[in-house]
Design a protein around this nucleic acid. Structure first.
Lengths: 220, 220
DNA sequence: CGGAATCCAAAACGATACTG
DNA sequence: CAGTATCGTTTTGGATTCCG
């Protein structure tokens, strides 16, 4: 449990916990807010309950995750990030952007989860482009929303509470829109995305949310 | 080889490569500069050559590491980070600082490698405290140096080329100096560190290199 | 719902030895 | 120096089932 490198090194510690299978994705999902065991399991297709339990215990023991009784609907248990764990958020955002640089279009067997979409939106946010707006995004089976207010952005899975300025339905090409490889206009005319709302708001969206994409040279 | 989460997610990609055993530490060592196979192996006590090879191949395949023929002494092979891989440096620095927050004093079985020391110094650097100086640091069997010049810092293992303004020999308590739990004066009088050079330069050092340390509450 | 318990299979790690 | 090859052992991941 929890890899041990026997090195007195902050990075080795981090690698020890977060390098375990599924650990980083569990934390990613928890950066969006408190989650139940079941939510985590469903949001991470392929995790056996036994592994999820193990990861949560380890993260708990390292002070990253906290296990609490849920007050509201139905009681039960929720997992949250501790303040220490929450400090990972900006780091994971950067790491996620780094990894996304080489991701153009989903492979046939790759899925998009709502949590990954929400986290990607948060990581993609560039303050200053727009002042305020709420977006509702659907990509394949995944749904998330992002609410911009000044330099802040709030994201989560599912649907926004307030009515969004724009609803976007995107397909596999959605990534290219975030990369600027497709302009807002192109994305619409090509059918890469369909929107409910004004075209101009989609222009706002692409200005506010951006993740560059490398020209990847084939490996000769 | 290379964990697969089947998710179209930058973080999942990153976790796939960097989550493999030893991978993050290999990258850490390479952020310091080109390294030979043997250097990496010796700097990572416990890695079998077979595993090291596997990790290097994976990192190479992901475009993070490049394998080149060494020009200079003796020929052979060196591994370097690609530009893409080098982009990880600031991220790993942040992750390392995050992990170090809960590390006060090395456990009896924890070692300090020269690479981890050098990387820790880089991560600990706060621009603005001093204008220029070179430090030579020894902690246990590990040796590294850091050269400050304006807002830039350069670090590596071993000894600096130019004569340092200060040589520091630290013991297990060295971490507390970086955390500010020990003042420069206290560190010297308590014997936590021994220095060759002016006391005042050690004051400079602690101002320029700092990694906070959490008050960790026992787990009740 | 929130897990604990079992069990099997497959990696993958670590050690060691050996080669170009 | 820079690995490859082999191999036994240990993990641990994944699937399934069951329980409070």
């Amino acid at each position: 449990m929890t890899k041990d490198y026997r090195q007195f090194c902050g990075l080795a510690r981090a690698a020890g916990v977060l390098g375990e299978r599924w650990a980083l994705l569990v934390v990613r999902d928890l950066t969006l807010g408190p989650r139940r065991f079941k939510d985590l399991g469903e949001g991470l297709p392929g995790v056996p309950t036994s592994v999820l339990t193990a990861r949560l215990r380890e993260l708990e023991q390292m002070g990253i995750v906290e296990r609490r009784a849920a007050q509201q609907p139905g009681g039960g248990v929720v997992y949250t990030l501790t303040p220490y764990g929450a400090e990972l958020t900006p780091i994971l955002d950067r790491l996620g952007r780094w990894g996304a640089q080489r991701m153009s279009v989903p492979a046939p067997d790759e899925i998009i989860t709502s949590s990954s979409l929400a986290a990607a939106l948060r990581a993609a946010y560039r303050p200053g482009a727009i002042t305020a707006a709420t977006f509702s995004i659907h990509v394949g089976p995944a749904s998330a929303w992002a609410a911009v207010d000044g330099s802040e952005v709030t994201v989560d899975v599912g649907l926004p509470e307030s009515t969004p300025a724009l609803i976007i339905h995107g397909g596999p090409q959605f990534r290219l829109l975030l990369a600027g490889r497709l302009s807002a206009a192109e994305a619409i005319t090509s059918g890469a995305v369909e929107i409910e709302g004004p075209h101009a708001v989609l222009e706002d969206f692409v200005r506010a949310f951006h993740v560059p994409l490398d020209d990847v040279i084939g490996t000769p």
